[in-house]
Nucleic acid binder design. Sequence first.
DNA 1: TTGTTTTCTAATCATTTGATTAGTTATGAT
DNA 2: ATCATAACTAATCAAATGATTAGAAAACAA
Lengths: 187, 187
Amino acid sequence: MPRDKKYNEVEVLERAMDLFWKSGYNSTSLRMLSKEMGINQFSINASFGNKQAVFLESLKMYKTKLHQLLKTFEDSSNGIENIKNFFYAFAAFTNLDNTKRGCLMVNTMSEFGLEMDEQVGSLISNYEQHLRALFKKNLEFASTKDTETIKKQVNYLVLAIGGLGLATKVQEQNVIEDYIEMTFTNI
Amino acid sequence: MPRDKKYNEVEVLERAMDLFWKSGYNSTSLRMLSKEMGINQFSINASFGNKQAVFLESLKMYKTKLHQLLKTFEDSSNGIENIKNFFYAFAAFTNLDNTKRGCLMVNTMSEFGLEMDEQVGSLISNYEQHLRALFKKNLEFASTKDTETIKKQVNYLVLAIGGLGLATKVQEQNVIEDYIEMTFTNI
DNA sequence: TTGTTTTCTAATCATTTGATTAGTTATGAT
DNA sequence: ATCATAACTAATCAAATGATTAGAAAACAA
């Protein structure tokens, strides 16, 4: 029988995710990953395949983390206030320990635009649909809004949370708070 | 007397700007620039210094273009509607010919975050101040808003236009329009 | 035409990149 | 203890990167 792996693939992937989150895909080299993950380049490729695959797995892990955050708001009582609370939680999440990393998915959208790896692209658009569903559900809750209004407000909130993900990379906390408060003044 | 330059530095810079606008700093190589600008790498460095300097000059040119757009709204009648019109013009500008390039400044903020070249950073924050001034002036026009409200609404609009710059890279036109319309129901 | 000056071309430099190789080490079933 | 297997290390590969070099070409004053 062969020897066992010295490292835990979930643990080293978490380090990879942190690095991609902070620096993006193109600015993160395999050598940086190797150093940060504590395993060498060969082991990275042995465990994941190649750099693109490490990135995809990092995105999946990020999505899981974000989903854990989201679940709280999916389970709790419904309504606008619930969406607003999610915005605040998202802002805290994307600026954990004042790291100003933004949102890995938003960063990735910005880095690649529409010319994105297909698997990465579908992971992200899948999550956008997920968010849309949450927003829609909460907007419909105890409300007399017509379908057209809800559609527009969902579009609005999706872009607003994208903008929030970008803003947490560069803006101060008080500006972020003003933004969230203002976003929900009229919906 | 020496020979004259075969190329016009403004024209080749415009090509460089287009490339940085489309692909960002790190994903644009000197060889891509050379091909697109129609001059070789030596000439690029002879005219501008190095890659970073070409980028800085590209940003300056972009800023000038954006400023030409902005001037229309600085000169025209004041008020909320004026800001809204600027949002629409900005959305059209960042998605000219359906190129989905977004805003070069927003793209740059997203690519580098706060760890940005000093000159690039001050150029961008300088423009943010410019926008803040425009928004403030128009919000104050024929309005009884208190100082605190105006401060919050300016913060809101600055982040909203950043989000719009990001959104034009990936979203459809109708979603963009819903976003702008909804943004201005809140102020 | 000649000579001087600068632009331009093409080749090359040292690094860095993603990826792979050859060879060594450790594990655990027998 | 032996040995088959897979994980590991370190070195290396070809390609791409930003930058620079040496020399040819062009323009104009004299």
